[in-house]
Amino acid sequence: MRMEIRLAGFGGQGIIRSGLILSMAACIYSDKNAVQTQSYGPESRGGSCKSEVVISEGDIDFPKVDDPDIVMLMSQEAYHKYVNTAKKNGTVLVDPHMVQDRNDPPNLKIYDVPATKIAKDIGKVIVANVVMLGALTAITKIVTPEALKNAVLRNIPKGSEDLNTAAFEQGYAYGSELVRKQGKTEP
């Protein structure tokens, strides 16, 4: 089955890195096919930024996201631009501290994950994307937590393993808790 995931925020949040981590978790650590594409502006930080991942057991002809099953939104601009792109009954993860102006459309499973705040509490706001990926793994089960954790460790600088592992674990725990409260969503 083909699964489409769209991740969006601003440059500097690790949006493109998150897409890479997720696609590596699927391609290298889960033996599926995965393609990651990206879109960003010429500004390295602050500009809008989007990463798209397609995961499938079969061949992936069209590598871009057309009708996303999962959307992860980490900025106000990303929310406005992409919340409506999720497919009917699709799963949407929102960082509520980054997105204050809300108008949630109906027919979506929306999960609020305060990833930026959790990351700040752990010690570094830059791991907010890993918190988000932890929650995404718990909520969507698109890859196993082990696969995602391995992919995280492959993508981070030496010396930041503990920080990133903590970020992943806390995100995963938060996501599991949300599933308990709001109900499960199958990919």
């Binding site: 890479l20 696609s23 391609c27 096919n33 995965a34 393609v35 990651q36 594409t37 990206q38 992936i60 590598p63 871009k64």
Partner: peptide
């Protein structure tokens, strides 16, 4: 650009 920046097996 898409092919250049796209990650795949």
């Amino acid at each position: 650009e898409i092919i250049g920046h796209m990650w795949e097996r």
